[in-house]
Design a protein around this nucleic acid. Structure first.
Lengths: 204, 204, 204, 204
DNA sequence: AATGAATGAGAGTTCATTCAT
DNA sequence: AATGAATGAACTCTCATTCAT
């Protein structure tokens, strides 16, 4: 038993090492330029070894995708401590935007990249994303019930606010904001979100 | 003269054929899987022939990119006929969202894809995108001056509304709305945009 | 007749233009990097046009090869004015080396490059090279008869001196003299030739 | 240990096989017509396999280049046994010429071909060529000090004799001696070298 | 006389993946 | 558990050349 446990632990550690290396390379060299070989070189194992821990390249992406959602969910936990519904909603946006700008490649995998969709829908693990979505949706609902934001279709309202946050960060991450000074972008992102929130009555 | 014209017309048709084939393949197989060879096979010419009409692969992307912005700008023209500032702003959103959902691969090239950045930023032709942005920004400014939306930094406000629309469509295009029924998506997209607009005072 | 003459003259001029452009490109970009297309672009004609004046690429090389030998032969003419057999021999070397260093691409074609051999041996036009060789050989023979250099097989002696000159320039042209300062090379070339000539009794 | 040794040996053998195949093809088809693919076809491996043993095409050329210099240096060793300076100098020529005529493609790579320059000059390994040059130069110097050949600039004298030998063999290798009977060429080469050596006082 | 259009052949290189050891 | 060796399939791009017009 002890032996098997140690083996399992080693296995998990190797998986983590592969994943973090892959992530590092994604960040450094852009997603398209990272090959299995490069990951292998980086951890000083052979490419074949990678396949002992992951079925194929997609499997790696999928795992990273999940790790990204874990991290986002973890960050969302601090929202739970906030009581005021207004503040809660605004904190959702702040956490989301911060997460995206600080983890651009996770964000890419989770919300921008084409590929994972298929694999994810097939598996039951999209749940991992749903947790975060539901958390937010429940707070939208609460705000509505409390009369803070106008009554309306909850899904529509939730989706609208998510879209706002996603739009802000994905335009930035994909360099479509050349009309603004790059160094101002994080601050502009938050301001743009705030601007809408304030205008729909979620004032600070 | 007639001969030259015909030749020129043929040349333009061939370019169009290449571009539309490229587009079709983008749609069917995703951007990364479209190679010069595949385009050539599809139009039943040799790969070398492609190079008679386009300098290289980037050149094809660049042409598609521009064609996309032409189309968007054309669609924006009908907004000019509207006098009421509120309606104008809402029409901006409607046109943008409709364009995106009806031309997902153009939209991908224009606002989601990584990379075109280099070629585009180098050339002065990013203007082609700026025309559309400026058109929108001017209307935001007008609404603000008219007291329809609260005074605030114009760039922030413009960016915020653009982000909203972009967020809505890009989440849909990238299949991140599995919590909703696919066939409702176009309507939900418009509703989500409307929801925010209404709440910030741009009522229908 | 006048018309045909003019046509013929035009044809010859076009050939010359093609050849000189080819040569210019050889010098600028190195032999291997010059394509028919590049030559055509440079004279602002289409690639197909080149083929109206030259059978194929080898034909161009062959013509340049001959032009090179014309130029060398022309330069050799000034040797004929010299009476003193010693001076004559030394002048041969001087003319040859100067020609090579001033026309590296001609020299390449004439004496270093692999290709032309076949085409040249087949045609009777290697004579064009033989004229120059014979001119030199006759002077070697004369020197031998005059007792200036030791009696010996004339072909061997001629070949030996030709080899010396060829060796000097071809090592320089092909950058194998990195142990010397590049700017000294022309002077070293002449000195090396002189050194041998002096030592075999052809003193200045 | 035994296993690793065997693997290492296999690896070296594969490298050798690739190199000798490349060399064979150079000889048969000329340098420009040898592609990675052709080499691969010839050894009945896939093109990709070549890249397991050599970084790129230049790397193959570079290895052959070095192998050539190794072989030349090895052959020069037998000169060291000779005491008489005159004989030594003449032996230098004999060894050099024999090496060239017996290994025309090595010689091509080492002393005629364009291009290797970049890779070679960059690396410190051009030394491999300098060893041979210095060996010869020291013997020229010795002869001069011994009064066997006239005092003069050592570099010039060394370069002159090297040029002579290089000229002799490169004219032959590049087929510029059509005025002579091909089967006499090796003997003529040695005679031409001898002819000069004798005349400058290095009599047999 | 000139060419636009086209192409087959081929270049060097990289990739994800497999499998015997 | 780890890997060295191997590969098929693909990639973008360039070339000399042909031929109907």
């Amino acid at each position: 038993m002890g032996i098997n446990e140690r083996k399992e632990r080693n296995k998990q550690e190797m998986r983590k090492q592969i994943l973090s290396t892959a992530m590092k390379l994604f960040l450094e060299e852009g997603f398209q330029n990272v090959s299995i070989r490069r990951i292998a070189d980086n951890i000083e194992y052979s490419p074949a070894t990678i396949y002992l821990y992951f079925k194929d390249k997609d499997d790696i992406l999928f795992a990273l995708h999940n790790a990204g959602f874990e991290e986002l969910y973890k960050r969302q936990q601090e929202i739970l401590a906030i009581k005021d519904p207004k503040k809660r909603l605004r904190k959702h946006g702040e956490v989301y935007i911060k997460f995206a700008l600080e983890n651009p490649e996770y964000y890419n995998l989770m919300f921008i990249m084409r590929g994972p969709a298929k694999k994810i829908v097939e598996s039951e693990e999209w749940n991992v994303g749903m947790r975060s979505y539901d958390l937010f949706k429940r707070d939208v609902e609460a705000s509505m019930r409390a009369g803070i934001i106008k009554k309306s279709d909850i899904d529509v309202a939730t989706f609208a606010m998510w879209s706002l946050a996603h739009g802000v960060v994905s335009l930035i991450l994909r360099n479509r904001c050349t009309m603004m000074d790059p160094k101002d972008l994080p601050s502009i992102a938050q301001k743009a979100f705030e601007y809408i929130m304030k205008n729909i009555g979620i004032s600070p």
